[in-house]
């Protein structure tokens, strides 16, 4: 069965000029698809370009090059206001820092209803408030919270408000940029459970950006590993853990400490020596990165010809 592609990213590039003619190639030609109803995880270390990817897809930055095709339409070409509005309603974002992403001068009701107002989704004032109350209950808060201000809430509750705001316009696709990294361990599980539940109930599609690999594995169907502006490996979540192929993925997986002392005593860390000279993506020189090859169904790895031959030889 051919699954419906909700989002296609084609050779997306995001270069930032940092003065004196220098360019930071934060995202340097990445391509991937997201199918309807799936969760695609994007992992990597700070500075690898994962957040920039999310922000460029939703249009917070104008892409340097490449296409983002959402529901068959190229969204970055859109010029008319009406078309932009339609796109903004279908795609929403949840931000990392629940302290910085809510306006401290607005009540929770106004924060959540902002999208409802912009898109004219509520016919009457009463309808508007009812929608807000419904959303608050959906994310595990109560009606009484609507008239309060963000500072009255804990980090986990604020992140729930951020989720309610994203849900308010009934989107199809949500980009979650490190939605749990600012939260406590016991609260992280609550928010992840909520996000999973919402995805099932509302048939949502997520791009889940994070650096916590255990959590990403848990929530994602497929995972893309980013390194210095490129995707080096993309695979179904299970396969990425069972059979990581790229040296960088291996090093990343081997560096995670697990809550298991016996495992920790025997864990051997694999060290990844970057083969590129200097920092790829941060220099003006064109960094040639090997293309992604499909080594098993749905499992793509960036390998040079020699590495690919070596991989095949090792299989036999």
């Amino acid at each position: 069965m051919e699954r419906e592609k909700l989002l296609e990213v084609r050779d997306l590039k995001q270069h930032f000029k940092i003065g004196r003619g220098r360019v930071v190639k934060a995202v340097d030609g990445i391509s991937f698809d997201i199918y309807k109803g799936e969760v695609l995880g994007l992992v990597g270390e700070s500075g690898c370009g994962k957040s920039t990817t999310g922000r460029t897809i939703i249009g917070l930055y104008d892409a340097t090059d490449g296409d983002v095709i959402f529901k068959g339409e190229n969204v970055h070409d859109k010029k008319s206001k009406a078309e932009k509005l339609k796109f903004n309603r279908a795609m929403q974002m949840i931000f990392q820092d629940p302290y910085a992403s809510l306006n401290p001068r607005m009540t929770v009701a106004d924060i959540i209803a902002e999208g409802i107002d912009i898109h004219g989704l509520a016919k009457t004032k009463e309808d508007r408030m009812n929608r807000v109350y419904d959303l608050l209950e959906t994310v595990g808060l109560t009606k009484e919270h609507a008239s309060r201000y963000p500072h009255e809430f804990s980090g986990g509750q604020r992140q729930r408000i951020g989720i309610a705001r994203a849900l308010a316009v009934e989107p199809d696709f949500i980009i979650a940029d490190e939605p749990i990294s600012a939260l406590d361990v016991s609260i992280q599980a609550q928010v992840v459970n909520l996000m999973k539940e919402l995805q099932r109930d509302r048939d949502l599609t997520y791009l889940f950006i994070a650096h916590d690999l255990s959590m990403v594995k848990y929530i994602s169907d497929r995972i893309g590993v980013m390194y210095q502006g490129h995707i080096v490996e993309l695979a179904p979540a299970d396969r990425l853990y069972e059979n990581p192929i790229h040296a960088y993925t291996k090093s990343l997986l081997s560096a995670i400490p697990l809550p298991d002392p016996e495992h920790e005593r025997t864990r051997k860390r694999i060290i990844y020596e970057s083969k590129s000279l200097g920092a790829v993506g941060r220099s003006d020189e064109d960094s040639s990165i090997p293309p992604l090859r499909e080594v098993e169904p749905g499992h793509f790895v960036s390998l040079t010809d020699a590495e690919y031959e070596a991989y095949k030889a090792q299989l036999v």
Binding site: V185, Q190, K217, L258, P259
Partner: peptide
Amino acid sequence: WGLLGSMPRPTDDPNQALPAIPGTP
């Protein structure tokens, strides 16, 4: 138990909800 249980492990079944600790401190 709650803290240890709410840490996802690579072997977890993704179809089961994570055992979260309800409420806040």
